[in-house]
Simulated assay, not measured.
Amino acid sequence: MKYAILGIKALLTLAFVAAGVAKLMGAEMMVGTFEAIGAGQWFRYVTGAIEIGAAALLWVRGREAIGAALLVATMFGAVLAHLLVLGPSAVPALVLGVLAAFIAWTHKEQVLPA
């Protein structure tokens, strides 16, 4: 189980750092996506920073649950954005959200009293 958790954390880190960097660097696709959502480009920067920061927290002992929870919340918003505005391609966001939820669950002792 230890190696499965490490593998999922590595996958999440790669996915969210890549997506976060694309958002912060102003990749054309990301700019268009956030334009379509209508929240403004400032939201693209905030989302990119959250994705990178949360991915980093997955590797900080004692903070893994916080990082994973931030990613779950971000993917919840992404799924809603895809279903309500962008189109039906919410499956990648849903899969990443479920993987992040699994990591949060494996570190639940960090946030829940014993």
Rank of each mutant, 00 (worst) to 15 (best):
M1A: 10
G48K: 00
R44K: 13
S89N: 14
V91I: 15
M1P: 10
H82D: 07
A100K: 04
L80N: 11
A114T: 14
A49D: 09
A65H: 09
A114G: 14
F16Q: 00
A101Y: 06
G97H: 00
M30P: 05
G67C: 02
V98R: 07
T74M: 12
A78T: 03
A49L: 15
I52A: 04
V46P: 05
G40R: 12
G77V: 03
V21T: 07
L86K: 02
A68C: 12
F102S: 08
K23M: 09
L83M: 10
V79H: 01
A22D: 14
H82S: 08
V79G: 06
V31F: 04
L96W: 04
A81F: 05
T33S: 08
G20L: 06
I52V: 12
L83S: 10
I50W: 03
A15L: 13
I103W: 03
I37W: 04
A15S: 14
G7K: 10
R61I: 05
V31A: 05
F76N: 00
V21P: 01
K9E: 11
Y3S: 11
L14I: 09
V17G: 11
P113N: 02
G20M: 01
I8S: 05
A19C: 11
K2H: 13
V31Q: 12
A55G: 05
R61Q: 14
H107K: 08
A19K: 00
Y3H: 08
F76Q: 12
F76T: 13
I52Y: 04
A27M: 06
T33M: 08
I52W: 04
S89F: 13
F43Q: 11
M30T: 05
I8L: 11
F16D: 00
R63T: 01
G67N: 07
F102H: 09
G20P: 07
G87H: 07
A101K: 06
T106V: 09
R61V: 10
A56I: 15
A68Q: 04
A73Q: 02
T74E: 09
L6C: 03
Q41P: 06
T13N: 14
G97W: 07
A78I: 02
E64P: 03
K9V: 01
V31D: 08
P113A: 12
A55I: 03
G7F: 15
M29F: 14
G77E: 05
W42S: 09
G48N: 07
F102E: 05
L6S: 13
E28D: 15
L83G: 11
G53W: 04
